[in-house]
Computed example of a mutant assay.
Amino acid sequence: MSEAASAEVEDQLWIVRHGETEWSKSGRHTSTTDLPLTDAGEEAARALAGPLAAVDFVQVLTSPRLRARRTAELAGFSTVEIDADLAEWEYGDYEGLTTVQIRQSVPDWSVWTHESPGGETAEQVAERLDRIVARARAVDGKTLVFAHGHSLRALAVRWLGLDVSEGQRFALDTSTISMLGVDRGTQVVRRWNVEP
């Protein structure tokens, strides 16, 4: 690739979903409940260190939740900035429940298309993740964020200028790396859900 072409394609926002917890393993919705990583989650978080160490990040941000902060630490980032805008979607009354359990009373429920009583709306999630997009766009260089499944999927679609509901199309596993960037002026997905 020529120097001119490489300047047009860059990975600007790197996102990492936290390592496995007991609730992520069992599919329970986890927002404000502050769970530790499982042993497998800690091991997978350590595996992130190699690929991420090779990249020069100008800013590293993390959700305030323990599972995200611990993943950042195990991945080799002991100095990070906590940003509450990266917290997981607040599920309200559905905290700790699985989708199957929620659908017993609300058939076809999805966080992407339905309300979560006592929790955040899609508009509220979009508003705070738009601030993360703005932070990443404002710096000259790469930003790395550590956060959660739904909030990172929402972040990706906001990067693309899409409605939060489109996040349902982006499956995201624990302890994976994804890269969002710019290609000829258009914000794009460069890589998604990559295991280290």
Rank of each mutant, 00 (worst) to 15 (best):
V125K: 09
F170R: 01
G96F: 02
H18A: 05
K25D: 10
E120A: 04
E20N: 04
G118Q: 15
W14H: 10
A53P: 09
W192D: 07
H18I: 02
A47L: 14
S151F: 00
R191H: 12
T21V: 05
S116I: 09
F77S: 00
R17H: 14
R46S: 06
A45L: 02
E127K: 13
V111E: 02
D85W: 09
L162Q: 03
V106G: 04
E123C: 00
H114E: 03
A134I: 08
F146N: 10
S24L: 00
V100A: 15
Q168G: 08
E88Q: 08
F57Y: 13
D39Q: 11
T33L: 10
A136D: 08
W23P: 00
L97H: 11
M1D: 15
I15W: 08
G167I: 14
H150L: 07
V9M: 10
A75W: 02
R17T: 12
D34N: 15
P196G: 04
Y94E: 04
R70D: 15
T143F: 06
A54V: 07
V189K: 09
A138W: 09
A87D: 08
A45N: 04
E73G: 03
Y91W: 10
S78W: 15
L97V: 06
W159V: 06
S63Q: 01
L160E: 08
A134S: 09
D183E: 14
G27E: 03
S6L: 11
E88W: 00
A49V: 01
V194S: 04
E166D: 06
G27T: 12
E95D: 07
V100F: 06
G141P: 07
G41E: 07
M1S: 15
A47T: 15
G149I: 00
S6V: 03
